[in-house]
Design a protein around this nucleic acid. Sequence first.
DNA 1: GTGAAAGCGCTAACAA
DNA 2: TTGTTAGCGCTTTCAC
Lengths: 343, 343
Amino acid sequence: MSLNVTIADIAKSLNTTSATVSRALNNHPGISTKTKKRVLRTAEKLNYRRNSIASALRSGQTGIIGVIIPSAEINFFGSVVHGIENMANQKGYNVLIYQSNESWEHEQKGIETLLNARVDGIMVSMAKEKNDYTHFLNAKQAKMPLVFFDRSADELEIDSVLIDDHRGGYLATKHLIEQGYKRIAHISGPQHLKIFKARLTGYKAALKDNGISFDPKLVFNGDVSIDAGRNAIQYFLKLSNPPDAVFAVEDFTALGALKELKHNHIAIPEDFGVIGFANEAFGEHITPSLSTIDQQTVNMGKEAFQLMLKLIEEKDNTKTSIVNKILEPIPIFRNSSLRKKNT
Amino acid sequence: MSLNVTIADIAKSLNTTSATVSRALNNHPGISTKTKKRVLRTAEKLNYRRNSIASALRSGQTGIIGVIIPSAEINFFGSVVHGIENMANQKGYNVLIYQSNESWEHEQKGIETLLNARVDGIMVSMAKEKNDYTHFLNAKQAKMPLVFFDRSADELEIDSVLIDDHRGGYLATKHLIEQGYKRIAHISGPQHLKIFKARLTGYKAALKDNGISFDPKLVFNGDVSIDAGRNAIQYFLKLSNPPDAVFAVEDFTALGALKELKHNHIAIPEDFGVIGFANEAFGEHITPSLSTIDQQTVNMGKEAFQLMLKLIEEKDNTKTSIVNKILEPIPIFRNSSLRKKNT
DNA sequence: GTGAAAGCGCTAACAA
DNA sequence: TTGTTAGCGCTTTCAC
C-alpha cells in the first residue's frame, strides 16, 4: 500500500527473494522462463517502477549523459542537442542539459554539477569566454568520458566532432569565383575562435588556388551579428575598388549584408553575390534566398554521441588515441549567389 | 587512493564519523564552527565530490526537473527551455530534457523514464499527436509534481502556464480589421490542442465584436506547417468570394501562405494581409516582414518553473486549487499586414 | 555538539 | 536455477 513498490514487495508476494526478482527484471542469464514470467506479471500488477537512483548507486551507472551548451535558444545548439538526444534515447540513455550562457564560470559549474550527478559522460560545446581549462582537466582526471562538439580547443587532448570550417570557407569562396564574381570580400568573426579563423584561411586558400591575390582591404572583421554585415557593406562600398561579392562568416552577418545591399539598390545576385555560413532556418525564406554552408547539426549530435558511446564502452581499457571526427560542410546555393543558370 | 573520496574517508582522516561530516557539509544546525571548518578544509584537500546519487537515494530528492518538449530543434521550445534552465540553475536544480518528437508514444516513454529517474518534478508541453492521457494520470497518481506549459489540456486538472491564445487570436484579427481588410480568413491548427482552439475562438470573437458575421468557409483546418499555409491559400483563392486577409495559427503556416500569395502575384499587404503567431526568428527578416503575436517564451519558462517550485514545496500539503497562469500575448505588426501609415 | 546504527532500493558476489 | 549476504554513499533518527 506504499506509494512505491519495490522489488522486495514483488519478492514477498511471490515467496522468493529480491535477487531473483532483480535478475528476472534485468534479463539475467540463468533464470527460468517461468519465474521470469511470474515476476514480470506481478511487477505489472503491482505497478512496479524501477528506482533508477538505487540502481545507479549500486551499479555505478546512471544512464545519463550530461551536455553543456552555450544556449538552448540558439538554433544551432538546439539542433545538435536534438541529434544527441535521438541517438541517446535509442541507446537507452537520457540527456541532462546544462547551459553555460557563454560564461566560463557557468561552464565550470556545469562540469562540477555533472560530475556530482555521476553522469556516464559529458559532451561539451565550449563557451566563447575563455579562461583556463582546469575544469575539463578535472573531469578527465576523474576518468569521466568527455567529447567536444563544434567548439573545441586543441590544447586539450579530447575527442571531438567538428565540421571542416576551412573547407567550408573554401567551398563558399570557390562558389563565388565560379559564379564569375571578380572581387570577393570576407566578413570575418572573432579570430580567437578557431572556427572563425579556419573560415578565413579557407577563403584565402580558395583565392590562391584560383590565382587571385589576397587583398587585406577586402576583409572586414566583425562580431557575428546583423550589424556587422551592415557595417561591412558600408565599408566595402566606400572602397575605391569595391568588391562584387562577399562570403560572410555566418548567416546573420550575411543577412545584414543583404539588407544593406538592398538598401543601396544593388542587384543581388546580378551585381553582387552573397553567401553565408550555418544554414539558419530563415535563409531559405528571405528574398533573395540565402546561399550558405550547412553544418550537419543533427548529424553532428549523432556522431558526437557515437564517440561518447565508444568511450563509455572502452572505459576500462586505457585509451591510446584521440579521435577528431571532421564532418563535411555542405554547400547550399540559393538565389543570393546564383547568377549562372547551371549548378 | 580510490578514485572517489567519500565522507567516510574524510571522517577517517579527521577521527570523526560520517554523520558529523555530512552535517558539516550540509550546513546543519548544531555543529561547531571549528569542526565545520576542519571538515570543509579536508574535503577540499582530498578533492571530495558529493555523490548526488547516494544523496538522492537516501533523501528522496534528486534536484532534477524533467522537461518534455516536442523538439529541441524548434526555436520556441529551445527558448522556453532556456527560461526554465536559467531559473532552475538559480534555485539549485538541474534540468533533464526529453523530446517527444510530437509522438504520443515517445511522450509516454518520457514520463515513464522521468518517473523512474525519480526527478523532483515534470514539466511538459504536450505532443501534437493525441491518444489518451493515462501517462499523465499515472504521474499525477504517483504524486509527481506536474506543470504544463504552452500546450495543455483542460481535461487534466494540472497547473499550467499558457499565453492567452484567445486574446492573441483576437488581437491578430482585430488588427486586420483595423487595417481595413474586409473578409478575414483563418488557418487553424489541430483542434484537440487547446491553444489552437483558443486562437480560433479569439478570431471569431473579434469578428463578432466588429459586426462581421462568421463564415465557416473562411476557416481552413491545417496541421501547423508551411504546406498547410500553401494549401489554405490555394483553397481560399478558389472560393467564389475569397478573403482579403488571413490570420494563420502559426508563423510557419503564415510563411506558407505568404509564399503561395506571392506565387499568385497578389500584393501584400495592399491586396492581402497576413499575420501569424509565435514570433519565430525568421519573421522579421523575410519579405514582406511578418506580423505576428509574441509568446514571451523565456518568461513562460521562468513562470512555469516558479509554479513547479511551489508544487515541490507544497508537496506534503494536499493541493486544493489548480493554477493556470496566463501570459499576455504581445502583438508585433510588420509589413505583411500594415497597409495604413499610422499604428 | 557528536557518535552509533539503521536503511533508502538495488545488484552482485558467493553459496547451495 | 535460486537464496544469502553484503554493501553502493549518504542522511537521519536516537542516544549520549
